[in-house]
Design a protein around this nucleic acid. Structure first.
Lengths: 165, 165
DNA sequence: TACCTTAGCGAGAATGGTTATCGCTAACGA
DNA sequence: TCGTTAGCGATAACCATTCTCGCTAAGGTA
């Protein structure tokens, strides 16, 4: 897991963007939120609140869980982070995406729990159009695929140490 | 909300199908599960566990919450019900679909909380193919649209009593 | 730079949906 | 009809998240 002090240019640009958004919305940015933000953006694994808490605590040992949730809320509200609730089987807590804070499809590996970004291909937009035709006004959408990631397909048949049988 | 004793033919067929699946899997079907099943299938509103509990309790006052969750689990495991976790903003608990217990897109109204089925149009399959091409093995998918249902679009601009601002 | 206002903080309790535990009961095969 | 045991009701436990409260410090202002 990559962290604060060896953050890449792209990541630090994202940190700057997110803090700018916070300030533009009149929200304050202190060391606590910076620690949370860098822990979030320093990871490409779609981390959960607990992982972000553990990571950010390295930089700020006094950090509390509540502050993490408040910071993530503030980021979500200002468009600096995407919240992903996975409560239908595979995973049981929210995950966050600070690198691509806009709706895009995800692939969830049922074997190892990893979450990967998937190329959209405009499918979401197409189905949204269909719904609009039926009278619904679509503001955003959510698409998740479940299965096995390449790393968890050793042979063809044997099932892995699954999280959800 | 429609219930047990004035259930339509289609619904009672679904009840029969679900109980058959339970028995085929070696699970038992007593009055408790029947009450849960009929409460689930008697509703087209994608009810939550609490609503199912309240509804089924009318037919079986001694029913406990635990039994509802166990029955819903048994139904899900045998393919008699589809579990929908909506934990990313709009709703905060599982919902269940006993009428169409197979993956299909849903529209969630951010104003009134209603959940509607949406025509798929093969978009899910297309995006799944794209993921397969990238090496992922897709077993199932999930697609949810968020916005406003026709009933919650009075004028063009004024926002409703939203559940999530 | 010092001061002020108040958003945000840490600590810990509370919440709420869901799951686990346990002794008892009844579904269903023999 | 009987025996096995899955399922039941009741309740405690669980766990991610939210709330509360008194204190602190971010950032605007003088």
């Amino acid at each position: 897991m990559v962290i604060a002090n060896d953050i890449t240019d792209e990541r630090s640009a994202r940190v700057g963007e997110a803090t700018a958004r916070l300030r533009a919305a009149g929200r304050r940015v202190g060391p606590t939120r910076m620690a949370v933000l860098q822990a979030l953006i320093g990871s490409d694994a779609h981390p959960g609140a607990e992982e972000i808490f553990a990571e950010a605590r390295k930089a700020r040992p006094s950090l509390s869980r509540g502050a993490v949730y408040r910071a993530l809320d503030a980021l979500r509200e200002t468009g600096g982070a995407l919240e992903l609730g996975f409560h239908d089987g595979a995973l049981s807590a929210n995950r966050y995406d600070g690198l691509r804070p806009y709706p895009h499809p995800h692939f969830v590996c049922l074997a190892c729990g990893a979450i990967h970004d998937v190329a959209a291909g405009g499918a979401g937009e197409r189905i949204a159009e269909e719904a609009e035709r039926a009278g619904f006004r679509v503001e955003r959408y959510r698409m998740d695929l479940y299965g096995k990631c390449p790393a968890c397909q050793p042979g063809e048949t044997e099932p892995e140490r699954r999280r959800n049988p």
